[in-house]
Simulated assay, not measured.
Amino acid sequence: MRRETQNVLLVLLGGALLKLGVNGDYLRYVKPAQQPWVIAGGAVILLLGAVAIVRDVLAARRTRAGTTAHDHHHPARSAWLLVVPVLAVFLVAPPALGSDSVIRAPARPAVAQDAAAFPPLPAGDVVPLTLTEFVTRAGWDSRGSLTGRTVRLTGFVVHDKDGVLLARMVIRCCAADASPMTVRLTDPEAARYPDDTWLEVTGQVVPGTAVPANGYTADVTVRSLRTVPAPQDAYEY
């Protein structure tokens, strides 16, 4: 690969990272706190590519003027690998992890906590909760703060051998360490929605159904469900 091509690819790669950081697509790969690093990395790579292009243009002018000799180099072919992330971002950027990842990975066990660590749920007929908080309370809150309370959960549909799950992927740093949080929907109506359909569900936990044997996947008695657009940030943290 010629030096000129390498430099152009550096500019494209830096621009691709900046695009991810600015338009929010970086959330498919890393958590929100990483946005400054994505933007900074893209800016540095873009600057390096621009500086290299300017330097080579100036060197070529000096060579044509006969003031210096310009050696011919043969850069490593591995530089072509720079094309892969550029094409991935501009052409085939993958969506956030979905139902396939849930089926392949075991559910993350809820983090053990003392019952005193769970404050009472706020007042209201319907309480919005993340799946992470719901699963943790269902599995570990011996005071039963969820019992008899109607909650609102948002996630995507996953069909497995035992029924229909509502799921969200949870990440600590980036999509590479993602693991699923899941609840099981008892309403047969949920079965008509295909995998990866995003739903907003209201319902109540079935006490005693979140146990280690099922990865703390509690059953939810569904009161209502409706489709919703996939959020820009599909992960929980």
Rank of each mutant, 00 (worst) to 15 (best):
P128C: 09
P128T: 09
D56I: 00
L199Y: 08
G155Y: 04
V84Y: 00
P128Y: 11
T63M: 01
R2Y: 10
R192N: 09
V211S: 07
E4N: 13
G21R: 02
L47Y: 11
S99N: 04
D71H: 10
V220R: 03
T221G: 06
D114F: 09
T186K: 12
T202E: 12
A88R: 05
W140L: 07
Q6W: 08
V158L: 09
F134C: 08
A76Q: 08
R137K: 10
V211C: 01
V102Y: 01
P122Q: 11
V111P: 01
R3H: 12
P85S: 01
R3I: 12
W198R: 09
A116W: 06
H159Q: 10
K19S: 13
L153F: 01
A191K: 13
L46V: 00
P229N: 09
A190R: 09
L81C: 06
V151N: 00
W198T: 06
V126S: 02
R62V: 00
D219S: 08
T209L: 09
S224K: 12
A69R: 14
A112G: 03
R168Q: 14
G139W: 03
P94R: 07
G148T: 07
D125P: 00
A167G: 06
T217D: 07
V206F: 02
G155S: 09
A110N: 05
D71L: 11
T63Y: 14
P212S: 07
R168N: 12
R28F: 04
G24S: 05
V54Y: 07
Q232I: 06
L46W: 12
D71T: 10
A210G: 03
L225G: 04
R172N: 14
A115H: 11
A117R: 12
W37T: 11
A230M: 13
Q113C: 04
T150E: 13
T136A: 13
I39F: 01
R62K: 12
G49M: 03
L185M: 08
D71Y: 01
M181N: 11
G98Q: 07
A96G: 15
P231T: 06
V38A: 10
P180R: 07
T209H: 09
I53R: 11
L27E: 02
R168I: 07
R149H: 14
T221M: 06
Y237N: 13
W80M: 08
P109N: 13
V57Y: 09
R223H: 15
D233F: 08
A69M: 02
V206N: 06
A43L: 14
A52R: 14
Q113Y: 08
Y216T: 01
G203N: 03
V170P: 00
T130S: 15
P229L: 06
R152S: 14
V57T: 11
L12K: 09
M1H: 14
F134I: 08
Y237A: 07
A110P: 02
Q6L: 14
L185W: 01
R55L: 14
D114H: 14
V205K: 02
V22W: 12
